[in-house]
Design a protein around this nucleic acid. Structure first.
Length: 532
RNA sequence: GGCCCGUUCGUCUAAGGGCUAGGACACCACCCUUUCACGGUGGUGAUACGGGUUCGAAUCCCGUACGGGCUACCA
């Protein structure tokens, strides 16, 4: 016995359980897909959709696949597809099946499946659920213009006007045949029923209903023979045995078209379970690829260069985010595990993720919080996990790193004060390169002969030190200060400037320890010449 | 305009009829530290509004307002 509401067999009926958000027991293998259109960089929302798909699949021991939805040839952007896979790789969210690793349901690029779709579209026409339409772009524009009123600013090609257009519903059959035989350019449109309520259970929102009287006759097969998203998504989700279909909330309004197609083509009971994720909002609404870096924070996962304009949009990766932090912050944008935990590894996310804990409201992206996540991850990271990144960053800034054991010690010492990876450059370059200039203004006003004498004596003192450790150096420093009758605090800043060049870095005696005795003395001597 | 979705501190969120509405980011103050951070302690700060239902509503229902999305031979 099938449920008329959720179209599921009795034990799986969504209405027999306490919450409409309940994930019904799955008899089928879990298979989910991310279906991007390769038209540019992948932004925050896209990566989060990938993430939620991935987590769901892994949690349920299922498959995560990526299907390239490139049915709009006019929007083809070279490099975009490769970029998507590079991004997934960086994020550690690699698909089980895709154009790069084909599974048993290929091809995974819709442009290569072109022939498949026509068959289904023709079937719909034959069954009376769709029709041929011959209207030209001009005729469509005219229709939109003629029927435009204040009440209805954007008229649709729907049941109220389809009988006034040029299509196989209005033209005599023989004329339709003649047009078709002559190879006249045409589209196939779905014939949406006039009065019907279609509904489905969204795993996040519960029951969502639509009245088909306001749904338009969407194009299914375009003039160039390619399917539109509406046809392709339904056909491919069926052919690829997708069990759960997740996408952004912007797709919710087209759900009735897809439901109808499932009903006409493969049976509503076979439709995957759907969930529409809340949108990630920027400062002015939905995040857009086109807005690039206008917000003052990245929107793309990685750097993206538009091949047409050569315009570079900076990504989270290049900004200095760790992939672990990036994923973590995305996961928490609209989901939480019900506890107060905020830092999760990918493995923990897989274990704890659940669709019913996804928030239904959109979330405004907060860059400050994003940085906090990264900071937490840098602090949490083992030095060995950071060393390649830091080394290459330093070398990019002309700071050669030859002593790897020093690098380890330096990273350990400074990582707590780095929020983004490039902060390591500021915090640690002076360990590898002697300062070329000093922030003299911070020292000069209070500089005097007594202080100069202190450092001259201090050089001698530490030169005799056998144990070169920060605590020993500090001890010597303070004893000498007491001997000279100067407050140690007044001497610490000059000392720091001597070793570092500026007012930053970890505790000064730790710096001296890592620098070594010779280098420390050398830097004091050099600086003394400048301080006068 | 129509349709759909949504609404708890500035931001992300917890609380699924029952305490002074909890946490995190950010902000402020203090402590630690005579660099800057980290860390610690404390503080400012929210249930959009109006009606119901109920002994009791942030929570359930209705309306209003506001926000967002969609309204292409784009996805």
């Amino acid at each position: 016995m099938w449920c008329n509401e959720c179209h599921r067999y009795k034990d799986n009926c969504l209405f027999l359980v306490p919450s409409p958000r309940y994930l019904c027991r799955m008899s089928k293998r879990v298979r989910v897909r991310f279906a991007p259109s390769p038209t540019g960089g992948l932004h925050l929302g896209g990566v989060r959709t990938v993430l939620y798909n991935y987590l769901f699949a892994k949690k349920h021991g299922g498959d995560f696949l990526v299907r390239i939805e490139d049915t709009d040839q006019s929007r083809y952007v070279p490099g975009a597809e490769e970029y998507i896979f590079d991004t997934l790789k960086w994020c550690g969210l690699e698909p089980d099946e895709s154009v790069q690793h084909e599974g048993n349901y290929g091809p995974y690029r819709q442009s290569e499946r072109k022939e498949t779709y026509r068959k289904y579209a023709e079937q719909l026409v034959k069954d009376g659920f769709a029709y041929y339409a011959f209207d030209t772009t001009e005729e469509l524009e005219k229709m939109r213009h003629d029927y435009k009123t204040e009440q209805n600013p954007s008229p649709q090609y729907d049941h109220t006007i389809r009988m006034k257009m040029r299509n196989s519903l209005t033209l005599p059959p023989d004329e339709v045949k003649t047009l078709l035989d002559a190879g006249t350019k045409h589209v196939i449109r779905i014939k949406v029923p006039e009065k019907e309520t279609v509904s489905f259970i969204d795993m996040i929102r519960g029951k969502v209903s639509f009245d088909t009287s306001i749904v338009d006759d969407k194009v299914l097969l375009k003039g160039d023979g390619m399917p539109t998203y509406h046809l392709a998504v339904v056909v491919d989700d069926h052919l690829m045995q997708i069990s759960h279909a997740f996408r952004g909330e912007e797709w919710l309004p087209s759900a009735p078209v897809h439901i109808l197609l499932w009903k006409y083509l493969f049976g509503i009971e076979n439709m995957p379970q759907w969930a529409h994720f809340p949108l990630i909002l920027g400062p002015n609404g939905k995040l857009s690829k086109r807005d690039g870096a206008k917000y003052g924070f990245p929107v793309f996962a990685m750097n993206w260069t538009d091949p047409k304009t050569n315009e570079l949009t900076e990504g989270f990766k290049e900004k200095g985010f760790l992939p672990e932090a990036f994923i973590n912050l995305l996961a928490l944008l609209g989901w939480n595990d019900g506890t107060e935990q905020e830092i999760f590894s990918k493995e923990e996310l897989i274990e704890k993720f659940s669709m019913e804990r996804i928030h239904s409201a959109g979330a405004k992206f907060d860059y400050e919080k994003a940085k906090w996540f990264n900071h937490e991850w840098i602090k949490k990271f083992e030095v060995s996990g950071l060393r390649f990144e830091v080394k290459s960053l330093l070398e990019k800034n002309d700071i050669p790193v030859s002593d790897i054991s020093l690098l380890y010690k330096v990273i350990e010492l400074v990582k707590d004060r780095c929020t983004l990876l490039p902060d390591f450059v500021q915090q640690s370059s002076f360990f590898f390169k002697t300062p070329e200039q000093w922030y003299v203004d911070a020292v000069k006003p209070k500089w005097n002969e007594e202080k100069k004498k202190f450092f001259e004596l201090f050089i001698e003192e530490i030169n005799a030190l056998e144990n070169w450790q920060s605590a020993v150096i500090e001890d010597a420093f303070k004893k000498m200060a007491a001997l000279q009758n100067i407050k140690p605090g007044e001497l610490q800043l000059p000392f720091r400037i001597m070793l570092v060049g500026g007012k930053f870095g970890p505790p000064v005696f730790n710096i001296a320890e890592l620098l070594g005795k010779n280098e420390t003395i050398l830097r004091i001597q050099n600086a003394l010449k400048v301080f006068g």
